[in-house]
Design a protein around this nucleic acid. Sequence first.
DNA 1: ACTGACTAGTCACTTTCTTGACTATGAGGA
DNA 2: TCCTCATAGTCAAGAAAGTGACTAGTCAGT
Lengths: 189, 189
Amino acid sequence: MALRHAVLAALLDEELSGYQVTKAFAAGVANFWHALPQQVYAELAKLEKEGMVAGREVVQEGRPNKRLFRVTGEGLAELEGFASTAAKPAFLREDLLVQVQAADHLDTGVLIGRLTERYAFAEAKAALFEEQLLRMRGDLDEAEFLLRGARVGPYLTCRRGRDFERANRDWCRDVMEVLRARQTAGGEV
Amino acid sequence: MALRHAVLAALLDEELSGYQVTKAFAAGVANFWHALPQQVYAELAKLEKEGMVAGREVVQEGRPNKRLFRVTGEGLAELEGFASTAAKPAFLREDLLVQVQAADHLDTGVLIGRLTERYAFAEAKAALFEEQLLRMRGDLDEAEFLLRGARVGPYLTCRRGRDFERANRDWCRDVMEVLRARQTAGGEV
DNA sequence: ACTGACTAGTCACTTTCTTGACTATGAGGA
DNA sequence: TCCTCATAGTCAAGAAAGTGACTAGTCAGT
């Protein structure tokens, strides 16, 4: 039941529409969680019913009206409660890891294909996070921003996202190297 | 539907009982996936019905009998199919990230508590993975093992698990440093 | 004699996540 | 004019994952 808390956390700093929250989750502001539009809207509806968020209709011209949500006092209390109970650590859960686990029994060429894809994805994602970090800290250098910046929470989670994807990228590179070296060595013998 | 493939991958190198697979998943051989006993047994039953794994009863003395499973040709084909379709990249999905995202609105002391817990957990997990790696490569040095060792798949995924937990540990440390520095700086102003 | 831990496994239930489709409106380009 | 994309959101159904409780025997320690 952490999706609700992720939604609350996303709404803390700004008033957003469901659509905007969705975007945030899709893009990678969801460096800290991931969810589809349907889940986001459903969760927002539940949160509103429970009084954790308050929505207000905004009439727009030239595009559909929207509802902006903000976190209420109760919502903040809920988040505080969540933060004060132990967080369960996440596990790595990647299809690619399962595939590499079976590497010795599968075709190396196919696997290298998967690794190449994941490498490119990780690289792109890391670059995206890096951009976000730059935007967030503006013209301050990182140390200064972390000490005196207004909101460091999103910055810190974004940094974790960046480093995670960098680690994925490096791991893909290393695994490909090993697989290629073994192919060559296998030929030698 | 990757649990089934994770189970298949776990059974590739050795014939295991459901209980042993469970252990593997619980401990951290599940560096690449995580599942509870109930899920493992249910998946094994399904896989057997579909002919992906074959079980055989082993009568034991002094302890309950068990059923050992091995992957069949069909099971291997299923894994090959899985490896040849694109792997969907995983996202970070940690309670603690959600909590840190909201850091600017929550009590720093409470958060540092969570971070300390996660730090210790990550440290312990990383050490465990490191031990496993040592066991797997025996007296060979890493480069030699990766080039000539019999089975490198599990080694490579375990290395990813270790590095993941190290990254978690380092991130926790950095976040705590930032939060503490800001508390002090806040007091100054 | 009792307690707790380990082996080996199962049932029932709930929550969460994912898939796929569908409603509208307006803007910009071929 | 038609097509596609972006905004803004909803419904229904199903697969996957997680929770809690429970059986039953063995072994080591207190």
